[in-house]
Nucleic acid binder design. Structure first.
Length: 281
DNA sequence: GATGAGCGC
């Protein structure tokens, strides 16, 4: 196992006594506010505005965070020290997120992304730590384990961008399906397996069960270069990743190309064929 | 087990 208990200085949470990858049905003593909110939430499945009293207490940042705020400027600028967190439930707010890691003293802030129109959480957020190392420890230690007060697994990853940065299209992705993966294969391992031979690799993702966080045994690898995608389909089929040979197939692309990504002649054919432009945007 | 969906104003 690559994972290790958090090194000195960081008190591991109580559920972290064993292998973090072994999911536990551990239930932490439940803060009442969260439970109450959870119940409110479950009763009427509301599409629209958060009930008043959604947030039990406004978030006064713990005083220790302010100390670290000062440190922040000294920390390497441009260093990514935020984690992206997904699969959040609706009642999980900034308080909840910072609370989880408060004992480390290394959390700077948390942000839950909400829909601008409805104000409802989008199901993901960001957590900023005092350093990349701190964030990495959290990622290693918690990813895949149960979130407090739930049997929902943490889904954590590096934040790809800093706040305010724009995600730019680097062109289309060429994706392959990879099946027969061993249970221990992670996004990172999958990507590394291809990286040396296919430099255009953009990312790899192992599909996991939403609640347990366990691998479903298949995933996707994205390339920037179509030729590398095509080569990988044959060259990597049957190659070992972790302990098992991969079975590679074409990816069923759920996300259609944008109109600009089609070759010119093909665009016209689509239009003549009555395919609406807006379906492709 | 067999075709996801996840990046901030």
């Amino acid at each position: 196992m690559m994972h290790q208990p958090a090194p000195g200085g960081v008190v591991p949470p109580p559920q972290m006594t064993g292998d973090p990858q072994q999911l536990q049905q551990y239930q932490q003593p439940t803060p009442q506010q969260w439970m109450m909110m959870q119940q409110q939430q479950q009763a009427p499945p509301q599409p629209v505005p958060p009930p008043a009293g959604w947030t039990p207490q406004p978030v006064p940042p713990p005083s220790q965070m302010q100390q670290y705020q000062a440190v922040q400027g000294a920390v390497g600028a441009g260093e990514i020290r935020s984690l992206w967190i997904g699969d959040l439930q609706q009642w999980m707010d900034e308080n909840y997120l910072t609370g989880i890691f408060a004992h480390t003293g290394e959390v700077l802030s948390a942000k839950v992304i909400r829909n601008k129109q409805t104000g409802l959480p989008e199901g993901y957020g960001f957590i900023e730590f005092i350093s990349r190392g701190a964030a990495e420890r959290i990622l290693q230690t918690y990813n895949g384990t149960s979130m407090p007060s739930t049997d929902q697994a943490f889904r954590l990853n590096w934040a790809a961008l800093g706040p305010g940065e724009k995600r730019q299209d680097e062109g289309p992705d060429y994706t392959i399906f990879v099946g027969d993966l061993a249970a221990d294969v992670t996004d990172y391992m999958l990507q590394e397996t291809f990286k040396a031979v296919y430099p255009s690799i953009k990312g790899a993702k192992v599909v996991t069960d939403r609640t347990t966080g366990r691998s479903k045994g298949y995933g996707f690898v994205r390339f920037g270069d179509e030729n590398e995608q095509i080569r990988a389909m044959t060259e990597m089929n049957g190659m070992l990743c972790s302990t098992r040979p991969m079975r590679i197939g074409p990816a069923a692309n759920k996300k259609p190309l944008t109109m600009q990504q089609y070759p010119k002649g093909y665009q016209e054919a689509l239009i003549l064929g009555g395919l609406d432009l807006y379906q492709l945007k």
